[in-house]
Simulated scan of single mutants.
Amino acid sequence: MPRGSSSKRERQYEHIKESAEQRGESTKRAKEIAARTVNKERARSGEAGSASKSSTQGKSASRRGGERSGKGGSDDRTYDELYAEAKRRDIHGRSSMNKAELKRSLSGS
């Protein structure tokens, strides 16, 4: 974090970093994601010394919510990821389900 950053931005950085690590990102990658997100938010709100055009226009990183992160919605999840989610939600019969059946059961259909 840059010197002189607010306690709000420090908390935001830690939250984003922890979330990325929970999603399975390496510590180094989690720090990078958090720093880039916080820096963009600082630029959008005028806290940064300078800001690029792309930082100040369009959706904010927090509103975009990873739209362009390369990891899409549930359609991109692997069988193992779907199975782990079904296990976490304690969905019965998950061990005999294929990928499409796991998707349906997780979506509630």
Rank of each mutant, 00 (worst) to 15 (best):
E21H: 08
K31N: 09
R94F: 01
E10P: 00
H92M: 08
K103P: 03
R89L: 05
A48M: 08
D80T: 15
E14T: 10
R36K: 12
E81W: 15
I33N: 00
V38E: 00
G46F: 14
L82E: 02
S7K: 12
H92L: 13
R9E: 07
K28D: 12
Q22R: 15
A43S: 11
R64W: 09
S5Y: 13
R9D: 05
A43M: 13
D90C: 04
T78K: 02
S109F: 13
G4L: 11
G108P: 15
P2C: 08
E81A: 06
Y79F: 12
E67S: 09
R3H: 12
D76S: 14
D90I: 14
L102V: 11
R104T: 04
E32F: 05
S60W: 00
R64T: 03
S109W: 13
K99G: 01
K53T: 15
I91P: 05
R63K: 08
N98C: 06
Q57D: 04
T78N: 01
S7D: 14
I16P: 00
G93S: 07
S62D: 08
R9H: 10
R77G: 06
A43H: 07
V38L: 02
S26K: 01
S109K: 11
R88Y: 06
Y79K: 04
G66A: 05
L102T: 12
E85D: 10
N39F: 15
L82V: 08
N39G: 08
G58C: 09
R104K: 13
A86G: 09
R63E: 12
A20D: 04
R63C: 07
R64H: 14
G108W: 01
A100D: 10
D80V: 15
G46Q: 07
E85M: 08
A84N: 07
R77Q: 14
S6K: 14
H15L: 14
Y83A: 02
G70T: 11
K31T: 12
G4C: 09
R29P: 02
S96G: 06
S96K: 10
A84P: 03
K71R: 14
Y13D: 04
H15G: 01
I33L: 03
S5H: 11
K99R: 13
G49S: 10
G24N: 05
Q12V: 04
A35G: 13
K40D: 15
Y83R: 03
E18W: 14
I16E: 02
S26F: 00
K8A: 06
I16R: 03
S52M: 02
D76A: 10
K103L: 09
I16Y: 02
S50L: 15
S45V: 07
P2I: 03
S55G: 12
I16A: 00
E21P: 06
R42K: 10
K17G: 04
M97F: 00
A86W: 00
G70Q: 11
S60G: 15
H92W: 08
A34E: 02
S109V: 03
D75F: 02
G73V: 02
K28Y: 11
S107G: 04
R29Q: 10
R88P: 08
R36D: 07
R68K: 09
R104S: 05
K53C: 08
